[in-house]
C-alpha cells in the first residue's frame, strides 16, 4: 500500500481542524464509554473496563497533550449530559482526573520524542501514573463516598471485595488488591490497542493525501 517514492508533508493543523478533530474524537470516546462492559471476575460492579481512553490517547498522541485533556473533558461532560450524575459530579471528576493522569504522561513523552520506543515508554509511564492516581482517589475520595452513600463504613464496604479476593482485609489491602490490579489491567489493554491502532490511523489525522509529492529518482 505504502508507496516508497511518495514524500508527504504533514498538513498544518489549523485551529478549526483542531477543534473539529477534538470534537469528533470526544464524541467517539463518549460513544465507546456508553458501550462499556463490566468485568465480573475482577471485583465489584462499580469497576468497569471502559475502552473510551483509546480515542483520547490516539488524539493526544496525534495532536498533543492539550488535545488529550480537552478530549477527556468532552468525554466526561458528554457522559454527564447524557446520563446525569449520581454522585453530584464526584465520580465524573474522578474519572476525568484518572483519565488525564494516564493520557498526560504518555502524550508528553511522545510529544518530545516521536519514536516507537518513546511511545511505549510513555504508555508505561501513563499506566503507572493512572494506577497511582486511581489508588489515591479511590482511597481518599471514591470509596469513602460510596460507603457514605450506602450508609456503610469503609470497612464494611471493603468486605465486598473480600468475597472475591481473600487477601482483602482493610482499606489499604482493598485498594492494593482490588483496585490497583484492575487499573494496571485496564491500562495495559488500552495501551496494547493504542499501539496496534495508532500507526494505522495517524496518517489520516495529519492529512495523508493532502500534500504528497512523488519523488522522481
Amino acid at each position: 500500500m505504502v508507496n516508497q517514492n511518495v514524500k508527504c508533508k504533514p498538513k498544518k493543523t489549523t485551529p478549526v481542524r483542531w477543534l473539529a478533530l477534538v470534537a469528533i474524537l470526544g464524541t467517539m470516546a463518549a460513544v465507546v464509554m456508553l458501550a462499556e462492559f463490566a468485568l465480573p471476575f475482577l471485583g465489584p460492579s462499580f469497576l468497569k473496563l471502559d475502552l473510551s481512553e483509546i480515542p483520547v490517547m490516539i488524539g493526544a498522541f496525534a495532536l498533543g497533550p492539550l488535545a488529550g485533556v480537552a478530549i477527556e473533558a468532552i468525554k466526561v461532560l458528554l457522559n454527564l449530559l447524557i446520563e446525569g450524575s449520581v454522585t453530584i459530579g464526584i465520580g465524573e471528576l474522578a474519572n476525568f482526573l484518572i483519565g488525564i493522569s494516564f493520557v498526560l504522561p504518555a502524550s508528553m513523552i511522545y510529544h518530545y520524542h516521536r519514536t516507537r520506543k518513546a511511545a511505549l515508554l510513555g504508555l508505561v509511564a501513563g499506566v503507572v501514573a493512572m494506577t497511582l492516581a486511581g489508588a489515591l482517589l479511590n482511597w481518599f475520595v471514591l470509596l469513602p463516598w460510596y460507603a457514605g452513600m450506602m450508609g456503610l463504613s469503609m470497612d464494611e464496604l471493603i468486605l465486598q471485595f473480600s468475597v472475591a479476593l481473600p487477601y482483602v482485609t482493610d482499606a489499604r489491602t482493598g485498594v492494593l488488591f482490588g483496585i490497583v490490579p484492575f487499573n494496571v489491567f485496564k491500562g495495559l489493554v488500552i495501551s496494547a490497542i493504542v499501539i496496534l491502532i495508532y500507526k494505522r490511523v495517524s496518517p489520516l489525522i495529519k492529512g495523508k493525501d493532502a500534500e504528497c509529492e512523488e519523488i522522481v529518482e
Binding site: A23, I24, T27, M28
Partner: peptide
Amino acid sequence: LIISISLRYIPTIL
C-alpha cells in the same frame, strides 16, 4: 461549541 458539535455527532458515530 465543541460540546454542541459532539452532541450533534453522537447519533452519526453510533
